[in-house]
Design a protein around this nucleic acid. Structure first.
Length: 716
DNA sequence: GTGCGAGTATGA
DNA sequence: CATACTCGCACC
């Protein structure tokens, strides 16, 4: 951290990154090899455009073998309107299909007679050249089709909204004058090592790249304010900003902070939540240069801004950043690709640090920005660790709340000074069962699946019989295979149950539940106990007096490669909402894993990420390498695997039964999954092979379709 | 996806 | 030899 801060000013300005990392985000050329001599218009019935008479069109279809451009004649009537980026309808195998003009060219390399464009859907070029190139880069990186990515990037057209923009000339947004210059001067950034250097480089029009570990989640120096200051700085320099957050609540906070510094007209929100009409309106404002800051959830990464200066991703470790539609791109990666194409600055900010971000820091592609020790001591809360075990037996009240004594005591004291946050594992009543004596998960004697009490069994009056969730075998007389015990208990009861229990454990306190459908965004007041599931923590205006991070061991023991990383991320997100230790802020974490608890105790997310990344390197696991998950019927999966391994020497795991297939619904078609681990150096070639192989087998229909997912963080 | 042409089976 | 059908694949 220290040696980095000293060299920060120099390295921020430097544009000589580590070559291996740089290559990952370099642009593959969208347009390759054309301009062979063409045939003359086949006795054209329509007069053709004289200048650039050919439109290169990408068809809207996710069929892999149609994932290329098709050439059409441009009728003279569309000579001026059918520009690159506009939506068109074109005749294709006997029907009119929608598509986008990617470019206008002088000649075609098609070895057949062309036909004219069908019709112009709209003369507004909704797909800019920059975004088209980005889409192609994303498609290439994720072995997907260009059309699929364009669908993510360009929202559905709303004709009514377009009307008022038809005669406007698209412009480049001019520099925005910050609303409140004073707030600007008192930048929260100067608390961070090399924070002001970062802002200075942005102001001067450079493109620094940074990974920020934000220490505070509330108040005037909270992360939304930091991000807004960075954005306003870039806007003052005349360039534009694209900022992506995981969810709606974060979006609202960022927007509020932005409005303090920038005129509302300069900000455009892109999120599905707004509905098609409002969303398309904001899209148009960006497209026409009327707004210069795009904020939103993951698809906002493709926002049609001009003159991009900075991309920002908040909390890139949150898996909401993963697109759920093919080709499953991650917002962070989209933004990084975009910054590479547009030579823009990058800011990956979070309270914790993802292993991906740490990799960018360690390869010196990005600079680490953290708060120095003395600042951390001043702004963060005291962290207390208590094992998640049996101390509670001594205290009947605490036992009701399944809470260690220290946690209960801390909460009780803190309630007099402000709201107290209780972070629990998940909402509702948890169905997972544990052995009462050794607390190992109860497993099915037949298939090792997890035992659970089903909802149906719960409704009957008699004592519910545990069942295996994989093979449905009932287990009326459970015997633990570790300690031979017979007792079963709920594994960490969920938020609802906790809320009920806490009401009894803390008489006189108001219990607020924030989970599932009932997520609160702000709380205030003393003697308020906020029970929230991870990720649903409301913000307390003046910070929480205390936070109890329960169920830690349960989160850590999840069967996921990222259980540790993700748990630590959730802890830091909650911990950053608590008052400084000097104001009495205290955090109690109930878990006994040294590495993750230690990271919180030392407030050292970077150190944790560094060790975690080192571990992944040793094991050859993501993000030290990339991973492709090929899921589908066995023959197709094996075919794709062979296509990869024929040319590249790659580590392969599987095929194995596809996960999530145990539950007897789709037992008919047994799908398998193969994981292929791909070094970054070979990733471009590997994704190219996958794309080609998918196209070939889709055209020939030799195999059932296979789902290809690259870097799906949830696959391991 | 769908339509079409080549190639092959089938019938009078 | 004419017609029916499937298969492979191009679609601009």
């Amino acid at each position: 951290m220290d040696h980095q801060s000293r060299s920060a000013a120099r390295t921020f300005a430097s544009s000589v990154p580590a070559e291996a990392t740089e290559a990952e985000y370099r642009q593959p050329s969208l347009l390759q090899g054309f301009s062979t001599p063409q045939k003359l218009p086949a006795k054209a019935g329509v007069p053709l455009a004289t200048d650039l008479p050919i439109a290169r069109v990408v068809i809207e279809s996710s069929l892999p073998h149609l994932d290329r451009t098709f050439d059409y004649w441009v009728p003279a009537s569309m000579a001026d309107t059918a520009q690159a980026g506009v939506r068109v309808k074109v005749p294709f195998s006997g029907r009119d299909v929608p598509g986008f003009v990617l470019e206008r060219v002088q000649s075609s390399d098609a070895d057949r007679d062309l036909v004219p464009l069908g019709k112009l859907v709209s003369p507004i070029p909704a797909l800019s050249a920059e975004v088209a190139a980005l889409c192609e880069a994303v498609a290439a990186r994720y072995a997907g089709t260009l059309s699929d990515v364009i669908r993510l990037a360009v929202p559905p057209r709303v004709a009514g909204i377009e009307k008022e923009y038809l005669n406007r000339y698209p412009g480049v947004p001019s520099a925005a004058k910050p609303v409140d210059v004073d707030a600007f001067e008192d930048s929260g950034w100067d608390a961070y090592t090399s924070g002001t250097a970062f802002l200075a480089h942005l102001r001067e029009g450079h493109s620094p790249r940074a990974v920020l570990s934000a220490a505070q989640g509330y108040g005037i120096h909270g992360w939304p304010e930091l991000l807004a200051q960075a954005a306003a700085t870039v806007r003052a320099s005349g360039r534009t900003v694209v900022l992506v957050v995981p969810d709606q609540r974060d979006l609202a906070r960022v927007e509020a902070a932005m409005l303090e510094l920038l005129p509302a007209s300069d900000i455009a929100r892109l999120t599905g939540e707004d509905g098609p009409t409002i969303r398309y309106g904001h899209f148009m404002r960006l497209l026409h240069g009327e707004a210069g800051v795009a904020i939103g959830t993951r698809s906002a990464a493709y926002a049609p801004v001009k003159n991009l200066g900075l991309v920002v991703c908040w909390d890139d470790g949150d898996d909401l950043h993963l697109e759920q539609r093919a080709p499953y791109p991650h917002a962070r990666e989209v933004l990084l690709l975009r910054a590479g194409l547009s030579n823009a600055a990058v800011l990956l900010a979070a309270h914790s640090r993802s292993t991906e971000a740490q990799r960018l820091v360690e390869s010196q592609w990005a600079n680490s920005i953290t708060a120095p020790r003395n600042i951390l001591r001043a702004v963060t809360a005291r962290v207390v660790n208590t094992a998640d075990s049996f101390q509670q037996e001594h205290d009947p009240l605490a036992a009701i709340a399944r809470m260690p004594h220290v946690a209960w005591q801390s909460a009780k004291e803190a309630l007099d000074h402000g709201p107290v946050l209780v972070q629990v594992a998940r909402s509702g009543y948890s169905p997972t069962l544990l052995c009462t004596t050794c607390r190992e998960p109860a497993r099915c004697t037949h298939c090792q699946g997890p035992l659970a009490v089903t909802a149906a069994a719960n409704t009957t009056q008699q004592a519910p019989i545990p069942q295996c969730r994989w093979c449905s075998t009932p287990e009326p007389q459970f015997t633990c295979q570790y300690c031979q015990g017979h007792g079963l208990q709920m594994a960490g009861s969920g938020a609802l149950r906790t809320a009920e229990e806490l009401g009894r454990a803390f008489p006189g306190a108001t219990v607020v539940n924030s989970s599932g459908e009932h997520v609160k965004s702000v709380v205030k007041g003393k003697r308020t106990l906020v029970v929230a599931t991870v990720g649903a923590e409301p913000v307390a205006e003046d910070g929480y007096a205390a936070a109890l991070l329960l169920d830690g061991n349960m989160l850590l023991r999840r069967e996921s490669l990222r259980a540790g990383e993700d748990t630590v991320r959730r802890w830091f997100n909650a911990a950053a909402l608590v008052r400084p230790a000097k104001d009495g802020g205290v955090i109690v974490v109930t878990a006994d894993d040294e590495a993750s608890v230690g990271a919180l105790l030392r407030w050292d997310p970077a150190g944790f990420a560094s060790r975690e990344l080192e571990l992944r390197r040793d094991l050859g696991l993501p993000p030290a390498v990339r991973v492709a998950a090929l899921t589908g019927p066995r023959p197709g999966v094996e075919h794709l695997t062979q296509a990869l391994t024929a040319e590249l020497s790659l580590r392969v795991a599987g095929p194995a039964a596809a996960p999530g297939n145990h539950v007897g619904v789709s037992e008919t078609e047994d799908e398998v999954r193969t994981l292929v681990f791909i070094p970054y150096a070979q990733a471009a070639r590997a994704t190219a092979i996958l794309r080609a192989a998918k196209a070939a087998s889709a055209a020939k229909r030799t195999h059932q379709p296979v789902q290809v997912r690259l870097d799906g963080v949830d696959v391991l």
